[in-house]
């Protein structure tokens, strides 16, 4: 998602879903303040709470449908170019040619037709997902009447808040991290950088052959033990404790003061230069991995927590009506 896409997400159709969500929240707050329940005790059993609960549940279902809408996104013509199959690519190229050959007005009509067919554009769905999801904080909180206990009802509420908080983090990453990635990677790709690192490793190995064993050991260790990626925490940390590449650079700097063979200073300088280049690339790769992991991790929690929320919501409703 680039900046214009994120801007579309927030401002979609002149803040259409912001207005809808805001209206929902305003109505709920006014109702909560003006409708006095029996004993002025607001809890899940009052009629207003029931209305708020049903509204919140429906919104949650709509939010869950965004996941379904995303999966049918590839069927919408504007998304066809994402397909990877060669046959499909050819078909899609033809379809795209046809598509772009259409008159602009016709294309708009087709957009609207497809939009209706698939329930609106994906941008619209995402915008609604964000704003309606945020409105749940108020709607569901008022539904609870702020009565909490150790039960499935509170668990449902807590899961919902976790999903929303997680979603906010996801929104933050989608709005901010693409710029960080561009700044870090430029025109390069992760695989491209890894290839460059490979070449620098080999170059360093060759340069080190004429140098003493200590230097070779450092270069070999830097090649073998410099870790890029790793487990979840290692990916998220974006660093390596006692990085062998850093250690090799430091070691060579120290050794260069003691080695005085005729042509070794030049060899050492060359090797040092190669390792410095590698160090820069390693940092960029680690940054890339860290940013991507941060961007992806929230979704690894958002989706499972959403499914758990759906189960909890179902149980909550069954429990309420089972013991009516």
């Amino acid at each position: 998602m680039n900046l214009s896409q994120s801007s579309t997400l927030i401002k979609y159709k002149n803040y259409r879903y912001f207005k809808i969500a805001g209206l929902l929240v305003a109505v709920a707050l006014v109702a909560y303040v003006s409708v006095k329940p029996a004993d002025s005790l607001f809890y899940g059993g009052t009629w207003l709470s029931f209305v708020l609960g049903v509204t919140s549940a429906l919104i949650i279902i709509v939010l869950m449908l965004y996941g379904v809408r995303k999966r049918v996104a590839s069927k919408v013509p504007e998304r066809r170019h994402y397909r990877t199959s060669v046959v499909h690519q050819q078909e899609e190229r033809n379809a795209q040619d046809d598509f772009y050959a259409l008159h602009k007005a016709e294309r708009r009509k087709r957009d609207i037709r497809e939009g209706w067919r698939y329930g609106g554009t994906l941008q619209g769905w995402l915008s609604a997902h964000v704003y309606l999801g945020a409105s749940l904080i108020v709607l569901a909180s008022l539904h609870t009447g702020f009565q909490f206990s150790w039960n499935i009802h509170t668990l449902t509420y807590v899961l919902m808040l976790l999903v929303i908080a997680n979603g906010f983090y996801g929104l933050f990453t989608y709005l901010n991290y693409p710029a960080l990635i561009t700044r870090n990677m430029g025109e390069d790709t992760l695989n491209g950088l890894l290839l460059k690192i490979d070449k620098l490793d080999e170059l360093a190995r060759i340069r080190a052959l004429d140098l003493p064993d200590e230097v070779n050991a450092l270069v070999l260790k830097a090649r073998r033990e410099t870790r890029l990626g790793g487990n979840l925490l290692q990916q998220l940390s974006g660093s390596q404790h006692d990085c062998p590449t850093d250690a090799a650079i430091l070691g060579i700097r120290l050794l260069s003061k003691t080695l005085i063979a005729d042509d070794q200073p030049k060899l050492m300088r060359d090797l040092y230069s190669v390792l410095l280049q590698k160090q820069k690339l390693v940092l960029r790769v680690r940054n890339e991995i860290k940013i991507k992991a941060s961007m992806q991790l929230w979704l690894y929690l958002h989706t499972p927590l959403s499914v758990a929320l759906l189960a909890a919501l179902f149980t909550h409703i069954v429990a309420i009506f089972f013991y009516w």
């Binding site: 290839l195 490979d198 490793d201 990626g229 991995i289 992806q296």
Partner: peptide
């Protein structure tokens, strides 16, 4: 057989975990 950075077994994405 030095392992190339491109052929590392260490995962570099969450999907590879």
């Amino acid at each position: 057989q030095e392992k190339a950075a491109t052929c590392r077994t260490v995962p570099v994405t969450l999907a590879e975990l």
